[in-house]
Structures are given as C-alpha cells and as structure tokens.
Amino acid sequence: MPILSEFEYFKPSSVREAVRLLSKHKKPAVLAGGTDLINNLKEEIDQPDAVIDIKGIKELSGITYKNGVLTIGAAVTFSELLDSRVIQSRFPVIAEVAKTVGSVGIRNRATMAGNICSAVACADSGPLLAAYEALILVRGSKGKRKVLAAKWFKGNKRTDIKKAELVTAIEIPLPARRHAGCYVKLGRYSGEDLAQASVLILALPGKQYRVALGAVSPVPVRASKIERLLNGQHLSDELIAKCQALIPGLISPITDIRATKEYRSHMCQVMFARGIRAAASRFSGNGPEYGVNLI
C-alpha cells in the first residue's frame, strides 16, 4: 500500500539541526525505527509535512554507562539493547523487556524512545521506565529538559512532549549497587503480540521492591501502595496475596478484542505473584534465567 500524502524528508546530522527542522515545519514527524510511523503514514493517521530521520545523528546512537546512570540514545534499537554488554550485566531486565518487543525484524528498527513517544498504553517500555524512575531527555529550541517517566506519560498516545521538541535520550539510574528485576508480559500466545497486561518488578537490597504495571491503564501504573506493603518484609504467600488483593484497585483495565478487563485484572495478580518471586530469587542469585517466559 503506498503512502498517499507527500512530505519532505530530512536526515539531519546534529540535534541542533533536527530541532531547527522541527520548529521550522508545521507538522513534522520524527522518524527513528518507523515501525509505528510508517504504518500511521499509510493509514493517514499521521500526515506530516516533514519527516525528520534521526538515525544520522551520531550522538543519539549510543548506549553509555557512567556514574551509575545508563543513557540510551534516542536512535538505539531494541536489538542493540539486547546485545549491549552493560545492559546484560547491570540491567538485565531491560534486555528482558526488549526481548518481548515484536520480533527480530521489528527490534532491529524499533527504538525505546520511539516506543515512549508513541506512548500507546501497551508500550513495553512504560512500566520499565516507571519502575526505574527514568528520565526522558528532551531538547527544544529553548534548550534541554529532563522529564521523569512518571510525568512523561499523559494518557494513551499522549506525552509531555511539546511542539518542536526532540527526545534525545533516556537516562536510567542504577537503583542500587545490586538489583534484580522481572518483566512479565501477557500476550495471546507466545509469539509476537502487544501486551494485554504487563508487570515489571525491581528487587533492591534490604527487601525493597518497585512494582509497575502496564497496559491496564492509559499510562503505566507505579504500584506504590504495594511497594509500601512489601518493603522490608519477608516475601510470604500471605504477603503476596495481600498485595494481589490491592491490584484491582490500582488499575483500570478495559475490555477490547484482545482481552476482557476481568482477565487482565486476574492476570495482573498472577503475573505479579510470579514476577515478585522471580525478581526476589534473581536478587538472591538463584532465580530463573532472564528472558524466560513465566506465564
């Protein structure tokens, strides 16, 4: 199917040039992996006057780790995240999330920055960044700003980005000297699917936990109530059950053709229980391998 509308294509080599192009055009669109954008162009959901391809900007293409902060450039693909040594060794749950995004041919193109700019409720990166309290680095003509993940997502397909701004990177601070995590994603089968619900858990020293849920609310849900209940406590069946009981009150799942709200809600509880145990045992060094599907 051809793209019906016409637009200009630019491939700037610097962020400054990209920002200038963004402010110059009325309806610009940023192209990173294009796995959402090209479909939107075909379906005429987006009809930009200019498409700005950021893959020529060197400074957006790296993964760096410095002073306890992981920085993921806006043009970094999910495949690159999966292959990254520093992610495998220090942030393995990021790789676990990346592995559930699409399949190889999608991951070779799609980027985490693109994922959070599309900001669909089922985005896999949402609960991850919420739990890590990540920062979204944004550049505009008036300069830089950093947005906390919790403030970034404003609704289904709505973010804090302003006109003529470009996401340049995502900063993920290492939450502790040692930590573990677990991402559990509900799809209709084992192959490629969009999340119908997802749970991301981080296990930190001192029996501290972070819990975030995805695809069961317009924006990722950080389950602070559950975290308060968990923190410092021994992970008993009773405690997990107490936490599970809180979940329906924290989320607002919908019924659509992918799943009913009853199943999403039920599965959040199941996924939470399995995820928290996996995260905790990974923290103690004997959990299931990262990337293993727990449901």
Partner: peptide, 25 residues
C-alpha cells in the same frame, strides 16, 4: 504493516520489514 515478515530484507545484515521502511532510509 509489519506483522507477517514476508517482505523481509537484510539491511546491513539485519532483517528489516521493508513494508515499513521508507526507501530513502
């Protein structure tokens, strides 16, 4: 729309779905 993979080509040795890639890329 990038769901089926039958348009797959290798770009620099990596598979991409050519139905959701602009030719200019």
């Amino acid at each position: 729309r990038g769901d089926c993979g039958t348009c797959t080509v290798l770009m620099n040795g990596k598979t991409v779905r050519s139905c959701i890639v602009l030719a200019v890329e």
